[in-house]
Simulated assay, not measured.
Amino acid sequence: MDSKINRGRIEFNNENYEKALNYFDAVDEDDEDYDYVLIFKITCLMELERYDKALFIIESLLKEEPADELLLYEKIRCHIALSEKVEAMETLKNFERIIAKDNKQMILDVARFYKVLGEFKKALRFCNLALSVDEDFEEALYEKSLVAIALNNDDIINNCADKLLTMVDEDKYIVIHVFLLKMYSGRLRDCVDIIDDYGGKFENDICEMLKTVVFNQLCEKLDVNVHLIEEGDVSVSEAIELLFDYERNGIKYGIINDVGFVIM
């Protein structure tokens, strides 16, 4: 292999894309590894945000291999970076036609592209297709929840959160994501239950912080606050329950821990 290619690869691996590109540019077109070099050049140009030049190479290669998944994938990325939505959509349609129907990762990539392009209903459809291949595909559930937020569909958000919650044993930080989804969809009681059921996975101060978030959200939702008539010790958890009682039953005042309170 040409020494320029080897040097280029070393710089490429060290993420010195400008230097790598200089070496790759010096490779002759009649070199037997020239097509191999072009793939590296595409990546270098994209890392350097020279999308128009990367696109020129990609399109020249696609003339020979019009169904190359990698080239089509990168072509979509270039069009998106260049704000060429029409061209991106056209290429994306070609891409989705050639990918394997059981390739959940590629299907999810299609969903992500549609989301970036603002085609949220199409993004949702491909999230569901990826999940039909693997119902426990965590990445697809995350992506589906983000698409549902864009669509303002609280039911889908909540369903994604419930499914993700079954995977907490594998990754404790799923709890935070689920908490945020429940918060966004207005399931504040679920938020409290999540903290109570899974709070042992985190430090106490994190749990208190999350409960404070719930308390503030309830105050904002109900347009009230909890006021103590005298000094006393009332926890955030207890204050939250007072607000839930107010929401359900309209209880505006009473005594808790021997301290009088008023909700107004």
Rank of each mutant, 00 (worst) to 15 (best):
L218K: 09
N159D: 14
E69L: 02
G8H: 10
N249K: 00
F40I: 01
L61N: 09
E74A: 00
C191V: 07
L222S: 07
E29A: 05
S132F: 11
D28S: 14
E230P: 02
N159Q: 10
E59L: 04
L72N: 15
R7I: 06
I229R: 11
I149D: 07
R248M: 10
E143H: 03
Y114F: 02
K53I: 02
K104F: 07
F215R: 13
L181M: 12
N257A: 12
F215H: 13
T43R: 07
E15M: 12
I206Y: 12
E29I: 12
L164H: 03
A26G: 09
Y173I: 06
L129D: 13
I256D: 08
V236G: 01
N204G: 00
F179V: 00
E96Y: 00
I157E: 03
G260R: 09
Y23P: 02
I229K: 07
F12P: 11
I206A: 11
I57Q: 11
E203M: 09
L21Q: 15
D136S: 06
D109Q: 14
I157M: 11
E15T: 09
V234P: 02
A130I: 11
I76F: 12
K115H: 14
E220S: 14
D245F: 00
E18F: 08
I240P: 01
E18S: 14
H227R: 12
A140H: 10
E87I: 03
N16M: 07
K172C: 10
V213Y: 08
L164E: 02
G260T: 07
I42S: 00
S237R: 14
E139V: 00
A239L: 03
D2S: 14
V178H: 04
N152T: 08
D31M: 01
C191R: 03
D68R: 07
V262Q: 15
A54C: 00
L61G: 02
M89P: 07
A81N: 08
E238G: 03
K201W: 04
L165W: 04
N13G: 02
D205T: 14
V178D: 06
E203A: 05
L131Q: 12
D190M: 12
D28Q: 06
N225I: 11
L92R: 15
C44T: 05
I263E: 06
D190V: 04
L188K: 05
V214M: 01
K41R: 15
Y246K: 06
A161T: 12
L124Q: 15
K41L: 01
Q105R: 04
Q105F: 04
E231P: 01
A239R: 09
L21T: 01
C127R: 14
D190L: 12
A239G: 10
Y253V: 10
I256K: 13
L62Q: 03
S237K: 04
Y114A: 04
K201F: 10
N249D: 14
V214P: 03
V234T: 03
I149A: 08
S145Q: 12
Y142F: 13
Y23V: 03
E139D: 15
I176Q: 14
